[in-house]
Amino acid sequence: MTLSSHMIHLMVILFASIFTDNILLARFLGMCSFLAVSRQVKTAVGLGLAVVFVMTCTVALDWLAYRYILQPYQIEYFRFILFIVIIAAFVQFIEMVIERYSPVLYQNLGIFLPLITVNCAILGASLFMVIREYTLLEGIFFGLGSGIGWMLAIVAMAGIREKLTHARIPKGLQGPGITLIIAGLMALAFIGFTGVLSGG
């Protein structure tokens, strides 16, 4: 592959993972925090940014661990536990670093970090990376795209839910019910991107 076609390939991965194959709306990952933390745009943005950052880094770290620890010893099935340990350790480490060097950032972003360890989208991205046999660079672009896609979905959802506070919703549908319906509509809209990118 020439350099420019390689670049195009990476861009396709990036945009496809944001729009046509959104990790939340098409792959259903990270639903727990999506339903719980999507009431306000401000918190959604904070959590979203944290996810983008952590996902990009952990996919890269997990790739290295998979390639240089698990594969040589043929113990690929340990990836589940190893990836979780890496994610937890990374989040802990980042929390400490931010707390030490940037109290402002810590106040805005730090509170979301513990939530991330239990976000299945993070682990999911790494597992997809393994299944799709990505190279390190492809993996990083995929992690970045998936993170941005997740953030886009949760911020849009929070925006809609803020407007919904005054809407009259049937009692049984309040809370998770209506959130799921909106998520379904958003998923429909995101399917529309398929044509734009012709991703298959």
């Binding site: 049984g172 998923a187 429909l188």
Partner: peptide
């Protein structure tokens, strides 16, 4: 995917 969201929402309802 949207079908999953709609179905679960209705069942929850």
């Amino acid at each position: 995917p949207p079908g999953a969201f709609f179905t679960l929402a209705v069942i929850c309802w």
